[in-house]
Simulated assay, not measured.
Amino acid sequence: MGSRIFHIAQVAGVEFKGGMNGDGPYIACDARYGDVALGICGLRKYRPAPASWRGREAKLGWWVVKYDDQARIDLTDFSDSEAQELSSEFGIVMFDDDDPLVSRDLRLDYFFTSPAWESLCRWCRERPKLAKQLRDAQVYLPSWYERAQTATTG
């Protein structure tokens, strides 16, 4: 894995990566040309507005969204169970048009129960200098560094 990639998982034959950037931990999918910060994202089943997304028709289906409605990763070919698998792997809450508002605390809490979180803790242990350099990158996932330090030493 690259020095800033802390987690890789295959879901429905598609590779997803957990990595670190200047905003903190994020999920990326090169095959779907998208990424979004963890902690603020969600999995939502809807049709994004406007009717086009990256120059093509926006379809009804699962999307990884920033906040509640900013489409970031197209998963419209995913089944409900595949979306659930991605949700569990990266600790991303699921919601739909009937209930699109999920609290930030719930989103944070769920991430901290995921395999991606365990990988981030391991990444911090294996790359302590880089983790420390990025500790202020907590825009969307506050306290990730402190919690990882506690998990690593506790």
Rank of each mutant, 00 (worst) to 15 (best):
G91C: 08
G91L: 08
E126P: 01
V93A: 06
V139F: 01
W123L: 05
M94V: 06
Y110C: 01
R104Q: 15
F78H: 02
F111D: 01
E89L: 12
E126D: 14
E89D: 12
G91N: 05
S103P: 08
D99C: 07
D74F: 05
L86R: 04
A83M: 10
A116R: 04
R127W: 07
D105Y: 09
L120S: 00
L134V: 04
D97L: 11
L86P: 07
F78L: 08
V102T: 09
E89N: 10
A116H: 00
K129E: 12
E82V: 06
R104E: 15
Q84N: 06
F78V: 04
F112T: 14
L75I: 09
D74S: 06
S103T: 14
D74M: 05
E89F: 03
E118A: 14
P100N: 05
A83F: 08
F112W: 12
Y140I: 07
S87W: 12
R135P: 07
S119T: 01
L141K: 10
F78P: 11
I92C: 02
P128L: 04
E118Q: 15
E89C: 06
R122D: 02
D98F: 01
Y140G: 02
L130F: 08
D99Q: 11
K129H: 12
V139P: 01
C121E: 04
D96I: 00
E82T: 09
L106I: 14
D105K: 14
D109M: 11
T113R: 13
L141E: 04
S119E: 08
L106T: 15
F112K: 15
M94P: 09
W123S: 03
T76P: 14
K132P: 00
L130V: 01
S87N: 12
E126R: 13
S103K: 11
D109N: 15
D96H: 04
S81H: 00
R122Q: 12
L134N: 10
Y140H: 13
F112P: 08
D96G: 10
C124Q: 14
A131F: 06
A83G: 07
D77R: 02
R107F: 01
F111R: 09
W123D: 02
S119Q: 12
G91E: 03
L75N: 06
L134T: 03
P128M: 04
E118T: 13
P128V: 05
R104T: 15
P100G: 04
C124A: 11
L86V: 09
V139A: 13
R122L: 10
V102N: 04
D136C: 08
F112V: 09
L141P: 01
K129Y: 08
D98I: 02
V139W: 01
G91H: 07
L106M: 13
F90Y: 11
D99Y: 05
P100S: 00
W117A: 02
L75V: 10
S81Q: 10
V93R: 06
D98R: 03
S87M: 13
P100L: 02
V93C: 07
S79T: 15
R125Q: 14
M94H: 02
D105M: 10
Y140W: 13
R135A: 14
F111H: 09
L134C: 03
D77Q: 05
A83K: 09
L108Y: 14
G91Y: 00
R122V: 12
R135S: 15
R104W: 13
D109A: 15
D98N: 08
